[in-house]
């Protein structure tokens, strides 16, 4: 594993007019590392994730990515074609609402196969075999390969979205509240699955959540945000068991009471 960080984030701020989205965020993410971003509603989690994943342009600051060729690239200076290529090959993005990340009117197999076709795979049999394999890995019956996600439950849709993202073996996956709208039992199963995949594939991931239990289960490291700023960061167990900031203490204790 490389000793150089995969992602270098330096003093990133995003303003919506005069309103702060996030401010002065700096950190580094290493290959295979899972980072959770936690904080209350409106604290800037989604804004930060969007700035990191190039879905939003930061107002100031630099995000650099360690490309497969070994070079660091400033994402803001990358051409659109290259950036979109990166997003659908080396990255994944798992939306809270699966409908935002899936094509609801094409089959599960085509949803998983789309990225392969986008990078030039032209063998139907191979694409289908890879799609079947991925459906199994996310615990969707292979007999559902020709069904559209419209016919899937919320949990299945989310698992399909994950398969669709992982099929090109990305190195970095962004997730915004991946267990958001799901029942508790469905959440637990999905979290187990994500944890297994991240571990097996050696994925780096940045997961936004307001659920500290999700952070505990999935992440190595976490960042706590408040009013757009990161107020505390460290190893997940350390932050949750021994929070230093009064706000984090409040957050942790209020969750534990629930």
């Amino acid at each position: 594993m490389s000793t150089l960080p995969l992602l270098k984030v330096n003093d990133v701020s995003k303003f919506y007019g005069s309103r702060i989205g996030c401010r002065n965020v700096s950190f580094e993410l290493y290959a295979g590392e899972v980072l959770a971003i936690v904080g209350e509603s409106g604290s800037g989690k989604t804004t930060l994730l969007s700035c990191l994943s190039t879905r939003l342009m930061p107002t100031s600051g630099i995000v650099e990515y360690h490309m497969r060729d070994g070079q660091y690239r400033d994402l803001a200076r990358m051409g659109e074609a290259e950036r979109r290529f990166l997003m659908r090959t080396d990255w994944g993005f798992v939306h809270q609402n699966p409908a935002d990340g899936l094509r609801m009117t094409v089959s599960a197999g085509a949803n998983v196969g789309e990225r392969l076709m986008a990078v030039g795979d032209r063998h139907y049999g191979n694409i289908r075999a890879t799609a079947s394999d991925w459906l199994q890995r996310v615990e969707i019956g292979v007999d559902r390969i020709d069904d559209q996600p419209r016919a899937f439950s919320g949990g299945m849709r989310q698992r399909l979205q994950i398969a669709r993202n992982l099929v090109t073996s990305p190195r970095l996956v962004f997730m915004d509240e991946p267990t958001g709208g799901l029942d508790v039992s469905v959440q637990a199963r999905l979290l187990d699955l994500v944890r297994g995949l991240v571990h097996d594939l050696g994925l780096a991931a940045i997961i936004v959540t307001h659920d500290l239990a999700v952070a505990r289960l999935l992440s190595h490291r976490m960042m706590v945000m408040k009013d757009g700023a990161v107020i505390e960061q460290g190893l997940t167990d350390r932050v949750l068991d021994d929070p230093r900031e009064p706000y984090t203490q409040l957050l942790v204790s209020s969750i534990l009471q629930v």
Partner: peptide, 22 residues
Amino acid sequence: RKMHALEEYGLMHVKLYEDIAR
């Protein structure tokens, strides 16, 4: 328009894939 500009034509094969699957 963007897909044409950037030559992102994976979707065309998604359609053909669906055809064969069906």
